[in-house]
Design a binder for these strands. Structure first.
Length: 359
DNA sequence: AAGGTGCCCAACCGCGTGTTT
DNA sequence: CAAACACGCGGTTGGGCACCT
């Protein structure tokens, strides 16, 4: 049947619909089009009225408070857009849904937060571990150690490394390093050092001015981000009432656990704090790098004969200096959406690299 | 300047549920 | 009771626009 018009509404059609509803109310939607002189189905009229023409609709950009409320409500209700809309006066479900899909979802992803579960993305953690686990031990040591001695690196490995497709891979490591505080903390736990990736050491290995410059700028961005936003990015977005647990295993050397937990420490002013605690253990058959072992030894509790290392804690206090919660991430990550295939590509690259080095 | 690309959002579609006949 | 109809919701689409190259 049909012959009924579809697609965008003209101003004339809008006027007819508004005039009719002002005079008569909408009553029966399926009867309305004929009575109002519109060549549309009732459903189309209803949608046009409820999503666009209704006088109580608030239009325009979402405020930061509205953004936060949407994220909070979504963490509680999921994709119940109409339920969410009832808590935002003047906003309609369709608009909120669109805003979520085009803006908020991406922003959460870029912050390393899963937009479905509202928890740190475990795919980041798993893929990161796979990546680190697949790196040749010498190179892993080089980028995680405080004490790099370039002369100790096997020249064959180094040569292969320099002439392989590592530029991209290293770039991805940078992104991983930047991608969340959680990842940085994992690096610390996994390597039992208090340092993040040793960018300077990596630069020595690469020996390339371009890449050194790239690293320096990334490092600056990273530092700027950390000083600007700190951990309130996390507490703002639904993590403040959750405890997060992550377990990780490295292919060669390490396994461990990591917990986020909200605490309220009156000694530190009673502010909400995130407690990061982790344990790290090695298997007895480890043949990993000397440097890693040295670092681990430093952390080892002498009275403890097991392989479990003393619990480490890193407490992050929310910064009050945060400007926009999302912008620093946007600067670092660009607009690229970090989806699953994106991360899997990184791992594929790491695996290929590993294969090349394997005896 | 023109063609390509990606983003945004209004509108559509299909489905589930409630109501009427 | 069931078939038909009405409505609301969430997922998806595609036209228009802005921005690149």
């Amino acid at each position: 049947m049909s012959g009924l018009k579809k697609g965008p509404w003209t101003p004339e059609e809008d006027q007819k619909l508004v005039d009719y509803i002002h005079k008569n109310g909408h009553g029966n939607w399926s009867a309305l089009p004929k009575l109002a002189g519109l060549n549309r189905c009732g459903k189309s009229c209803r949608l046009r009225w409820t999503n666009y023409l209704r006088p109580d609709i608030k239009r325009g950009k979402f405020s930061e408070d509205e953004e936060k409320l949407i994220v909070k409500l979504h963490s509680l209700l999921g994709n119940k857009w109409s339920a969410i809309a009832t808590r935002l006066p003047g906003r309609i479900d369709n608009e909120i849904k669109n805003y979520w899909n085009t803006h908020l979802r991406k922003k959460l992803l870029q912050m390393g937060i899963d937009p479905v579960t509202h928890r740190p993305r475990t795919d980041h953690i798993n893929l990161f571990n796979a990546l680190i686990g697949n790196l040749p031990p010498q190179l892993l040591a080089a980028i995680t150690s405080n004490y790099i001695n370039i002369n100790n690196i096997d020249m064959n490995i180094l040569t292969n490394f320099l002439f392989s497709d590592t530029a991209q891979l290293i770039h991805q490591i940078q992104l991983l390093q930047n991608s969340s505080l959680l990842v940085n903390s994992l690096i610390r736990n996994a390597t039992a050092t208090t340092s993040p990736l040793n960018i300077e050491a990596l630069s020595q290995i690469l020996g390339s001015q371009n890449q050194i410059q790239e690293y320096n700028s990334t490092l600056m961005n990273n530092q700027q981000f950390l000083s600007n936003s700190s951990s309130d990015s996390l507490t703002d977005f639904g993590l403040n009432s959750s405890n997060v647990h992550a377990e990780f295993t490295h292919a060669n050397n390490f396994s461990g656990k990591l917990d986020y937990q909200e605490i309220n420490d009156t000694k530190l002013g009673g502010d909400q704090l995130m407690r990061l605690s982790g344990t790290c253990s090695t298997s007895s058959s480890v043949t990993g790098s000397e440097n890693q072992m040295k670092n681990i030894s430093k952390m080892h509790n002498e009275n403890n004969t097991s392989d479990i290392y003393p619990k480490q804690e890193l407490i992050m206090q929310p910064s009050s200096a945060s400007t926009s919660t999302f912008e620093p991430w946007g600067q670092i990550m660009g607009d690229e959406e970090a989806n699953d295939s994106y991360w899997r590509d990184i791992i594929d690259q790491a695996s290929r690299l590993h294969d090349r080095y394997s005896p």
